[in-house]
């Protein structure tokens, strides 16, 4: 992740990295490695790509306060991405760092669900996506606090507090805009309708989910559907918005590396510097 300039003390970064970590046998479990690596990338990439999308609002927010809020939200998400990808790199044990994973993988190696890579659209769609993902993220992190992996559990406990804050904020704004003017209501309904067919991917299990669930590391994706639905219906009810009566699992594949065309454009921008000037620091 982008680190701060290291002006005076070149050892600071090395010193900080020598962290004492809780013992965690899962991290070195060879049989589990491919699934655990993929699953950690899903957590990290979801946060990274949504964080990058959210950061696109920096300097373009509809009001100064919203601009600052979105930039702070992006910062939180990119912080979560750093924690997950750092652990992914450690599990992989191939000498790659979190930065290598973020800036040097191609689109087909990214494991984020498609919903986070879609363009922001207007502020309504941005906030609706934030809400839909936050509500999932919140339930996931809540469950992960009881993970059999202490390393996963400590990241979840840390990130969970920040995501609770984000979910409160997103819920509040979705309600105010949904139950707002005719124009804001219509835009929020359109945003929900547009994003709906991408939400099912969050709850669709595959072999990776199965393997980490078997190891007690994470819940199956499908286990989060019930609590997510409850939050969704409560907030949409308050927002006077209609939950679509259509299938939600239409656009799948992001978790397995099959992405929309939009991800390539994000990476072209996000990875430009490291691709053009490998190893550059600032």
């Amino acid at each position: 992740m982008p680190s701060l300039p290291d002006m005076a003390t070149p050892e600071a970064e090395r010193l900080a990295q020598e962290a004492a970590q809780p013992a965690d046998p899962h991290i070195t479990d060879v049989a589990l490695k491919p699934a655990l690596f993929d699953w950690l990338c899903r957590m990290g990439d979801g946060a990274l790509i949504l964080g990058h999308r959210t950061s696109e609002w920096c300097g373009h927010g509809p009001a100064l306060e919203e601009d600052i809020a979105l930039a702070n939200t992006a910062l939180d998400l990119i912080g979560h991405a750093a924690l997950w990808l750092e652990l992914a790199a450690e599990v992989e044990a191939q000498g790659r760092t979190a930065d290598d994973l973020a800036y040097l993988r191609d689109a087909m190696r990214f494991r984020n669900p498609q919903i986070v890579e879609l363009p922001n659209g207007d502020i309504g769609r941005t906030l609706m996506r934030e809400f839909l993902y936050d509500a999932w993220h919140y339930e996931m992190l809540l469950k992960l606090r009881d993970s059999s992996s202490p390393r996963v559990a400590e990241i979840a406990a840390k990130a969970g507090k920040e995501v609770a804050y984000q979910l409160d904020r997103a819920s509040d704004l979705v309600i105010r805009l949904g139950d707002g003017t005719e124009e804001s209501h219509a835009r929020m309904q359109a945003a929900l309708d547009h994003l709906w067919p991408y939400t099912g991917e969050l709850f669709t299990d595959d072999a990776v989910d199965e393997a980490v669930a078997e190891a007690g590391i994470a819940p199956r994706a499908s286990e989060l559907q019930g609590p997510w639905d409850a939050t969704l219906r409560e907030v949409m009810g308050e927002a006077t918005l209609t939950v679509p009566d259509r299938r939600a699992d239409v656009h799948l594949g992001g978790k397995q590396g099959r992405h929309t065309e939009h991800l390539g454009y994000i990476l072209a921008e996000m990875q430009f510097l490291q691709r053009a000037y490998p190893g550059a620091e600032w």
Binding site: L4, D6, T9, A12, A16, D76, G79, A82, K158, E162
Partner: peptide
């Protein structure tokens, strides 16, 4: 905060 940019600076 996870993404607090001051973290590296504080260590320094």
């Amino acid at each position: 905060y996870s993404g607090c940019p001051a973290t590296a600076f504080i260590n320094m």
